[in-house]
């Protein structure tokens, strides 16, 4: 733990995905890590109607003193996209310096599977993000999670990759993760987290 003295600035994390993908749990874990590292932390999440397969977003903010629970437009340091289309939907929060960790996974929205709209190509999604100034890192989150036996672990794989951007010791991440997942899934979650650390950030 490097403690409060090392806090140099704020970090804003935007989690995006589809209702039911586990963005809330992942953003809870990142909030917990922030608190354990001595940051003030705020988080905002979406409940209710939006959970039924709709587009969802969660905001997590670390800083010396955080007022708003929402990230300001253009201010996201990290975009963690659990689904490819949802990586491209929130570009108003992205700017030069944003790192987008994108799970290479498609969930087709109704207009697409009804044949009324086209799901953008991977290149288009990357261009949208880089056009907004973001660096894009593709992560085989779902593929690795499926290998581990549960596609729902994809978000934890992303957290593993995210952790490589921080100096905070690994055990802070691991303890936060273990603290927030049910006991019987702890080992599997730790495995998924370390699978994420194997990806080049």
């Amino acid at each position: 733990m490097k403690g409060v003295a090392n806090i140099k600035r704020k970090y804003d994390f935007l989690f995006t995905g589809v209702g039911g993908q586990g963005t809330i749990l992942a953003s809870d874990i990142v909030s917990e890590v922030g608190m354990r590292c001595g940051y003030d932390v705020k988080k905002s999440e979406v409940h209710g109607m939006s959970q039924r397969g709709g587009a969802v977003e969660s905001h997590v903010r670390w800083g010396e003193k955080v007022y708003s629970p929402l990230i300001e437009e253009g201010e996201a340091d990290f975009l963690l996209a659990f689904e490819m289309l949802e990586a491209a939907r929130w570009t108003q929060f992205v700017s030069a310096g944003t790192v987008a960790l994108v799970n290479r996974h498609r969930i087709l929205p109704p207009t697409v599977y009804l044949g009324q709209a086209k799901y953008p190509e991977e290149k288009e999604i990357e261009d949208i993000l880089t056009g907004a100034g973001s660096k894009v890192v593709w992560i085989e989150g779902t593929a690795r999670a499926v290998e581990l036996g549960n596609p729902a672990l994809a978000g934890v794989v992303l957290l593993g990759t995210l952790s490589k951007y921080f100096d905070e010791p690994l055990d802070v991440w691991e303890n936060s993760l273990m603290n927030l997942v049910p006991e019987k899934f702890r080992d599997l979650n730790i495995k998924a987290f370390h699978a994420g650390r194997e990806f080049q950030g």
Partner: peptide, 16 residues
């Protein structure tokens, strides 16, 4: 105004 993403297929909530 913040720059919104271009027209992307919408993803409304729906019956499970």
């Amino acid at each position: 105004q913040p720059v919104q993403s271009q027209q992307l297929p919408v993803r409304p909530p729906m019956l499970c």
